[in-house]
Simulated scan of single mutants.
Amino acid sequence: MWLFWAFLVFIHPLGGPPLQSPSCPWEPFEGLVAIMEALGDTNDGTLYTPDNLSVCPMEILRCFGVELSVIGHEEGPPLARAVNRLQRTLRALGPHLWGIRGRAASEPCPPCEGYPERPVLQFLVKLLELLQVACAGVHQVG
């Protein structure tokens, strides 16, 4: 877990915006860390995990939220509360980062079940990557 914390600490000096800025709140990062720490190495499940984060960002964010529900359901009440908080934060953050509809896709957005299944830790790391890209200003609000 120390590697994950180091990754979060070092990503800011490498060009990311301050994590406390209004466009990039700390809550989703904090929620991810809480879930990762609670899971540790005990979860061997898989979740649908998008690979290309630049296509259909709002739909991808919704898919991450749906798949997070699986973690909360399987792990029980203490982790379910952390998952619910993260889901609420993501729902509020999405329109702020990408606008109401997100970027227009050149093709239809695939359903969540169309993405490959990956281990839970890889799923959470991919969600972290999506948030870092969004908070680095790659996507335009509008």
Score class of each variant (00 low, 15 high):
Thr89Met: 04
Gln87Leu: 04
Thr42Gln: 12
Leu128Trp: 10
Glu113Lys: 12
Cys63Ala: 07
Arg81Asn: 08
Leu79Tyr: 00
Thr46Asn: 11
Leu61Asp: 09
Gly102Leu: 02
Asp41Asn: 12
Glu74His: 11
Gln122Lys: 12
Arg88Leu: 12
His96Asp: 12
Asp51Arg: 14
Glu107Gly: 04
Gly45His: 11
Arg81Trp: 04
Ala82His: 12
Cys56Ile: 00
Ala104Glu: 13
Leu47His: 06
Pro116Asp: 05
Ala38Val: 01
Leu68Asp: 01
Glu74Met: 10
Leu53Val: 06
Thr49Pro: 05
Ala82Asn: 11
Leu86Cys: 03
Val55Lys: 12
Pro50Tyr: 00
His96Glu: 15
Ser106Tyr: 07
Glu67Phe: 04
Gly94Gln: 09
Leu79Phe: 01
Leu121Gln: 14
Ser54Asp: 10
Leu128Arg: 08
Ala82Trp: 02
Gly99Asp: 06
Glu113His: 11
Pro108Leu: 11
Trp98Pro: 06
Asn43Gln: 10
Pro119Gln: 03
Pro95Arg: 11
Glu117Gly: 10
Leu90Phe: 03
Leu68Gly: 04
Glu37Met: 08
Cys56Phe: 00
Met36Gln: 10
Glu37His: 08
Ala105Glu: 02
Thr49Arg: 05
Thr89Glu: 11
Val55Thr: 13
Val66Cys: 06
Asp41His: 09
Ile71Trp: 02
Arg91Gly: 08
Arg81Tyr: 06
Asp51Thr: 14
Leu79Gln: 06
Tyr48Arg: 15
Gly99Trp: 03
Pro119Asn: 06
Lys126Leu: 10
Pro78Phe: 00
Leu39His: 02
Leu68Ala: 03
Asn43Cys: 11
His96Arg: 15
Asp51Phe: 09
Gln87Glu: 08
Ala38Cys: 03
Thr42His: 09
Val83Gly: 05
Leu79Lys: 04
Pro57Asn: 04
Arg101Lys: 14
Gly102Arg: 01
Gly114Asn: 05
Glu67Lys: 07
Ala92Gln: 13
Leu47Ile: 07
Gly72Tyr: 01
Trp98Glu: 04
Leu121Ser: 11
Ser69Arg: 12
Ile100Asp: 14
Pro50Gly: 00
Cys56Met: 01
Pro111Arg: 13
Thr89Ala: 14
Phe123Val: 05
Val55Trp: 06
Leu53Cys: 05
Gln87His: 09
Glu37Trp: 07
Gly40Gln: 00
Ala80Val: 01
Gly114Tyr: 01
Lys126Asn: 12
Phe64Arg: 04
Ser106Trp: 09
